[in-house]
């Protein structure tokens, strides 16, 4: 029996917009186990972003329970949640969110800067390891503006890995990339997943979602479908079928 990383029970989230209360999440029950690769899907307004914000401890639920690796997030303070994010979570964003004019290595080191237990030397070693994992060890002194979109996203993935999180949360991580680069990024995620990393991936692209192991479809604040992806597809295999343009040659 695999360890449960994320457990959500009857989770609700309301927003007060002027006079109107918007029910973004209306009673979500969810369990994600170690080693799963979950895609959260849904149209805009379906509540998937709200779900991700709560899973990412950036937001608090209105009611219900959320256990992240055994920690109950619901009644934590701002600072406690920040600590939890630093220790347990890795984030990958649609627009990479790398610090400009800062080398890839320093960008990857950033989460460890907020952990006082990690010394400078260890921090650098961990960051280099993470960059090696995403295949960018040779670019570690490049600044974001010297890297392509795919490379920037791989730096971002390395940054999400560097603190050895229990789960990586990706928010439309392929949204800004072309098809081929998207598959390259997905192949990186699949590789991480095959090494045992738990990944939660928000996307609205079915093509991307079928590269994961489980799809949760959101609509109007409910999970309307929970599909186990039966036939596993490898991003690497799809990549081989795509035509290669000169632009992509290294």
């Amino acid at each position: 029996m695999a360890k449960t990383i994320i457990e959500v029970k009857d989770l609700r989230k309301d927003f007060q917009v002027g006079e109107v209360t918007v029910h973004a999440l209306r009673g979500i029950n969810l369990k994600i186990e170690e080693g799963e690769f979950v895609a959260i899907m849904g149209a805009s307004g379906s509540g998937k972003s709200t779900m991700l914000n709560i899973l990412g401890c950036l937001d608090k639920p209105t009611s219900g329970e959320y256990l992240l690796d055994g920690h109950s997030v619901g009644n934590m303070s701002r600072d406690e949640r920040a600590w939890l994010r630093n220790q347990k979570l890795g984030f990958v964003f649609q627009s990479y969110n790398l610090l400009a004019r800062t080398s890839a290595l320093e960008n990857v080191e950033l989460p460890l800067m907020y952990n006082p237990k990690i010394k400078a030397k260890e921090r650098k070693e961990l960051a280099i390891n993470a960059l090696e994992t995403v295949g960018l060890a040779d670019r570690m002194h490049h600044k974001p503006n010297q890297l392509s979109g795919g490379q920037q996203q791989r730096v971002a993935i390395a940054r999400s890995l560097v603190n050895d999180p229990v789960v990586i949360l990706a928010d439309e991580a392929t949204g800004n990339l072309d098809t081929r680069t998207s598959y390259e990024i997905m192949s990186v995620f699949q590789e991480l997943n095959s090494k045992g990393k738990t990944i939660v991936f928000v996307t609205h692209e079915p093509d991307i979602a079928r590269l994961t192991s489980k799809n949760l479809i959101f609509r109007d604040g409910h999970i309307i479908k929970d599909i186990l992806v039966s036939h596993k597809t490898f991003a690497r295999e799809i990549l081989e079928t795509l035509p290669v343009y000169d632009d992509y040659k290294k």
Binding site: G56, L58, R78, D79, A82, W83, R85, N86, Q87, F91, F93, N97, L99, L110, P111, Y114, N115, R159, N163
Partner: peptide
Amino acid sequence: TREIGLRMAIGGRGKD
């Protein structure tokens, strides 16, 4: 602002 958001997401507290 986005840098601040990122720093918070990766564990920066308000105090930091």
